[in-house]
Write a protein that binds this DNA or RNA. Structure first.
Lengths: 217, 217, 217, 217
DNA sequence: TATGAATGAGATTTCATTCAT
DNA sequence: AATGAATGAAATCTCATTCAT
């Protein structure tokens, strides 16, 4: 089912080395962009020879796809972890925002890479990332639906719009960790020094906006 | 005050030609990315010789900055147009979302270029775009402040968070016009075919979320 | 008789302008080398338009030849001035060394250009400068012959070798004015700070070496 | 201590290939000048691909410096060989003039390159060659000092001037091998056909000029 | 005659990919 | 399987020369 972009050779090397290579690739791709990343840099950051890279991945594009696939696996784990059926709406939003923030802090280059996949220049990789977006959409809609059902979200709220908004907000928060410019922008909004608490604050604020009871209290 | 990135020669050619070159550059940069764009492509799309490009801009990076500067001028005009002091909060949000959408539809490559400026690989251009982000922040905060003052926004709403959210939403809508992937994502949320009405729908939804009276009716 | 490398147009412009252009060309050619000199630089240093240069000289090489021709005229004037039949050998050597030094100090770029004509890369201009070298040879031989005749030069001295030596020494002194490296080398030999008196000192020393009376004292 | 201008790759290839590349570079640099030499020409003369050149030297300037460094090594060997403490002054001068002449005959392009380093346009390489000039100065001064001590040089001779003169003469002889123009000039002085014996003749002549006994016999 | 915009051939430099060892 | 030297297509940038105004 899962398409593999690497060679058989790549499967025969120690898992630790595989991981090292994919992390190096992720780092370089995020830092220098897909077009700007150099195979030689990935090789030297991973501590393998330049030539070996092409025995692991047929082409540079294949390496990119392998990195994207790894990023999706990580993302899936994160979402699954925060997909607690029992949690209330407010907690679910908080949990996702927080884990989005933390993950983006831990591997900002992966976020940078993910952001670059929305660009026209990288459209040929869109198919590789679409399942992730689709999954993300579905999950936000379920979260909102549960909120509506539990009465935490006001009855008049447009569910689809709310899900879109929550997704946009989460994406924007992640962007703030991956990009100096977006970090500056966040600080312009929330004030410098408060950025660290941004995910919680944003979660609280958006939950309040969506709930009816909040305004009546 | 305004830094110029082009040469004197560029100022001496007919305005119509200048505009043609900047639009071609914007198109190619948006389509192929800053790193991937080739000066020769810009030249041929603009109908000038390869060598001429370097008599207009000292380097490729200068051309990129000139295109960014032009994009900022356009943005500024847009924002100014929607900065009607007399309009109510709901109308202001609608107007900005709509003009963001329309502008992104008219020149999606410019949006693509703008998005790419958030990437680490293009950090050297961040200084060129920061004034725009700063301006955008300020305007959203004023819009929200007016909404609060007029009572259209519920008293309990976190103003800074609301401004951030509105900005993120506008950015996300523009992204949907520039990127096939983001367009697909929008359709996943609002349903295919309804994308065209997305800016109004999102504006209405977010205005409703922010208002207290809405939930009590 | 004299070949002209410039156009008729060049002869129709004011002499002052002609001189300005040739001096600018000489300066740029000396500073940047024949290959490295840019017509646009010559034009801007001379205060004329880039395009005009090609209405004065059909090609860059023609401009180079015109500058060489001017340099030869200057050189000829200098040599003629020091070609005083009545002077004794010692005075003649002193006079030529001194005027070589002063001229090189006044227009080091012209010397730089002259030096570059000895390089293989500029062999195509050798014919333009050969008459000057030939003239120089002839004059040194006459100076030495007069010295021999007057008894100032020892009878056993190889006249041709002496003339060659004097020429080489004069050339070396001029080089010291045109080149930072050669200036450093001169200072290594004579000590820093004494470079200014070098032409006289060298003249005195070489005259002494060539004279027999010196050894008997 | 010794600065290397080449890459690690260059050190890993067979010595024979290294030498072939440096000689080709020397040949092309001498023939076409530093500015005029094309990397592609060096590559094809050395029988390697164009791209390989840049895996040996980071830039063209680095290649130039590598060639200069090799030239200096050769030069140093030559001087060392003629630095026989036991030889009399006359033999030392003869030996250096002769080896300068022979070396210039063997690799005239290297001499051409060396000459071009005195030009303003190549001033950025002056630091690379200064140690050689400095060494040369020192050696000539020692040769003259020994001649004075042994009585072969007349007591009244200006030692520094004599050393400078010997150096200038040696340089001029080398120039005659590297440049067609300078060869023509030498023939004007000593007569055509006699050029081959020039170094010995000049050595004898200058030794005679510097010695007192010679004129009295 | 003067101007300066336009041209395009050509130079250096980069880097994915190949392949002999 | 691993290495790293070799390759050559392609990109940016330069500049002598042309030519319309």
């Amino acid at each position: 089912m899962a398409i593999r972009y690497h060679t058989a050779t790549f499967e025969n090397i120690p898992p630790e080395k595989r991981e090292r290579i994919l992390r190096a690739a992720s780092r370089v791709l995020g830092r220098d962009g897909i077009g700007g990343a150099r195979m030689a840099d990935v090789a030297s950051e991973a501590g393998v020879s330049h030539g070996s890279m092409f025995s692991y991945f047929p082409t540079k594009d294949d390496m990119v796809r392998a990195v994207i696939a790894r990023g999706m696996d990580i993302q899936a784990v994160r979402f699954a972890a925060s997909d607690d059926e029992g949690a209330c709406f407010a907690d679910a939003v908080r949990a996702v925002f927080r884990s989005a923030w933390d993950e983006a802090s831990a591997e900002p280059e992966l976020i940078s890479l993910w952001l670059s996949l929305s660009l026209a220049e990288n459209a040929r990789f869109a198919d590789a990332i679409l399942p992730l977006e689709s999954d993300s959409t579905e999950r936000w809609r379920r979260v909102v639906a549960r909120g509506k059902a539990s009465g935490e979200i006001d009855g008049g709220v447009d569910e689809r719009a709310a899900a879109y908004l929550l997704d946009a907000l989460a994406a924007q928060l992640m962007k703030s960790r991956a990009s100096g410019l977006e970090r500056a922008k966040l600080e312009l909004f929330v004030g410098s020094g408060l950025a660290e608490s941004a995910p919680d604050r944003m979660a609280d604020a958006v939950v309040a906006m969506l709930s009816s009871s909040d305004s009546s209290n």
